[in-house]
């Protein structure tokens, strides 16, 4: 299980994947944290699939507007230059390839870039929300998650066991241990984070990894 520190590390590394001028959708949970680390040097517009382009900071108590929420149903504000629109328009933006980066959480990722993050058979089904649409629309799909499950089992596998959210959709995986790119030739380990070795990552990964770590 990721500690507060490892969640921050993952969020800070994910932020580096966002370029100045990007339109970005952050999923619910750990991906939402990325917003806290966006460099003031960059102009980044955050999209919320319930119909807001330009998520601002959380409101002060005086600013709370019950009609203004993000996709996680939290009260938010709208940033300068924001726009509101309906849900069909929101997903037209998503599916139409207009979002530069989407950062999502994950339960499992396969070596072909399949993502499972919406249901565990036998457990309560909550629904996929917008995840199945998002994984097909954004130009770059980044999954951020713990490297292993709560039971210590690898989450990066040859094939996903859980029901899929999307097939062959993931571009990069960032965990507390490192950064892995999904390429047509399979998974490539590009970065190893402090406190871990290449061997640690190989041991905790079920999928085959090509090692291409820049020193």
């Amino acid at each position: 299980m990721a500690t507060a520190n490892s969640r921050e590390l993952i969020a800070r590394r994910a932020e580096k994947e966002i370029a100045d001028g990007d339109y970005v959708n952050l999923g619910i949970g750990m991906p939402t944290l990325v917003a806290n680390y966006i460099s003031p040097e960059k102009t980044v517009v955050l999209q919320s699939e319930n119909g807001l382009l330009g998520i601002g900071p959380y409101p002060t108590e005086d600013e709370v507007d019950p009609d203004l929420i993000n996709a996680g149903k939290e009260t938010v504000t709208a940033s300068t230059g924001a726009a509101y629109f309906n849900s069909a328009e929101s997903f037209a933006m998503i599916r139409g390839g207009h979002i530069d980066v989407a950062i999502l959480g994950g339960m499992e990722v396969s070596e072909k870039g399949d993502l499972a993050n919406w249901m565990i058979p036998g457990k309560v089904i909550k629904g996929m929300g917008g995840a199945m649409d998002l994984v097909h629309g954004a130009k770059k799909i980044i999954v951020i998650m713990d490297h292993v499950s709560k039971k210590g089992e690898p989450k990066i596998k040859k094939t996903c066991d859980l029901p899929l959210t999307g097939k062959g959709v993931v571009d990069k995986i960032i965990t507390e241990r490192g950064l892995i790119e999904v390429t047509p030739q399979g998974l490539v380990l590009k970065e190893v984070f402090e406190g871990y070795t290449v061997q640690d990552i190989l041991d905790a990964t079920d999928a085959d990894l090509t090692i291409d770590v820049r020193e």
Partner: peptide, 20 residues
Amino acid sequence: ALSGELEVELTPQGTLAEKI
């Protein structure tokens, strides 16, 4: 939903919006 009293059709959010 678990007891089968309620029929549930889960639809991706963008698909739901576009279906409507």
